[in-house]
């Protein structure tokens, strides 16, 4: 039982990282933009958050956790949205190839973040590892009374606020896409921009906003990873990139439905950590187990393609630039 709870809690923490990444990407893709820069954007969010908290804690005489939290949160969102803006400008205005631009953004984000992350580690001196303890504590704060309620408390109340925020964002996104007028227009843009254009929807504006806001949300995954998952430190081991790709896979697994992404993300977490809880695995087998989320995504992709369901398909004009047809 303890083992199971421990697996589930680590799955939720893991799932939250990729859930942010996937939610942002769903919003972006619903506008018809396939942004493969998710890993890079998560890097940007992570480093912006860490760096902001680091300098705040360095220069403030008595750093307050909540202030560090707000500052780093805003910085992370802004930096990620800025990454989205670069992508949007290149693909929407200049009509660059979306795949190439996205991959470039991933390389750029990873490089930039690790350059500054490495510098911060050097700046920190000592063991060569920065730590933004105060801010990170604020991120990881939870109610000990509630969490103390046996396994229920463990499972439901032992996380920092961002784990809950992710669920709220997912539900909001689901409502937004399915119920709201703006969400409906956004879906039309991603499905059939020419039709949306003829209906008087500003296609360019919608694409820009969805891409920037989507990137902002994706970046929260990086922030959560840095502040909560690895407790306010920075490591240049490339984990964020791996998680970023998993987030892209999650978008497909969830068939572009934000609400579905919630449990799918936790399922990915369970699959990812399963090897820790199965006795007697060799090193090689562990690596095979880590593959599970990707294998499952491929299976879902195959199943969805075979079912021919129009509901489970990517937005029709995903990956295509739009320009008004001229004769």
């Amino acid at each position: 039982m303890t083992q199971l709870i421990s697996l589930l809690t680590s799955a939720i923490v893991f799932g939250t990282v990729i859930l942010y990444g996937a939610l942002g990407e769903i919003i972006t893709e619903k506008s018809g933009n396939l942004n493969l820069g998710v890993p890079g954007i998560m890097y940007l969010g992570g480093i912006a958050g860490i760096a902001t908290a680091f300098f705040y804690e360095m220069y403030a005489a008595e750093p307050i956790g909540a202030v560090g939290l707000i500052l780093s949160f805003l910085a992370a969102f802004l930096a990620s949205a800025l990454g989205g803006l670069v992508y949007a400008f290149l693909t929407i205005t200049l009509r660059a190839n979306q795949n190439v631009t996205g991959l470039t953004l991933t390389i750029f984000g990873a490089g930039l973040a690790n350059l500054f992350g490495g510098s911060l580690n050097a700046l920190a001196g000592g063991v060569g590892q920065i730590s933004v303890a105060v801010t990170s504590r604020a991120y990881r704060a939870y109610s000990h009374t509630l969490a103390g309620l046996g396994w229920v408390g463990q499972l439901l109340f032992s996380f920092g606020f961002m784990a809950y925020l992710a669920i709220v964002v997912a539900l909001l996104a689901s409502w937004f896409l399915n119920r709201s007028r703006v969400g409906l227009n956004l879906r039309a843009v991603g499905e059939d921009p020419a039709t949306a254009d003829a209906a008087g929807i500003n296609v360019t504006l919608y694409k820009y906003l969805a891409t920037c806001v989507g990137a902002g949300i994706s970046g929260m995954g990086g922030l959560y990873y840095a502040m909560d998952y690895i407790k306010g430190t920075w490591s240049t081991d490339g984990t964020i990139e791996a998680l970023g790709w998993l987030a892209v896979a999650l978008v497909i697994f969830a068939t572009w439905k934000p609400a579905r992404a919630i449990w799918s993300a936790y399922l990915f977490g369970v699959l990812y950590w399963a090897y820790n809880y199965i006795a007697g695995l060799s090193r090689a087998t562990i690596e095979l187990f880590k593959m599970l989320p990707y294998v499952v995504t491929i299976l879902v992709l195959v199943a969805v393609s075979m079912r021919h369901s129009r509901e489970a398909q990517p937005p029709r004009s995903l990956g295509l630039s739009y320009f008004r047809e001229e004769r």
């Binding site: 119920r179 007028r181 039309a188 499905e191």
Partner: peptide
């Protein structure tokens, strides 16, 4: 036809029209 496939008839009609937050 200028219609979005995955939307319903009513949703297609509502596309781009001004109105409240919720369709």
């Amino acid at each position: 036809f200028k219609l979005v496939d995955v939307l319903t008839a009513a949703e297609n009609i509502a596309l781009g029209l001004p109105g409240g937050l919720v369709v």
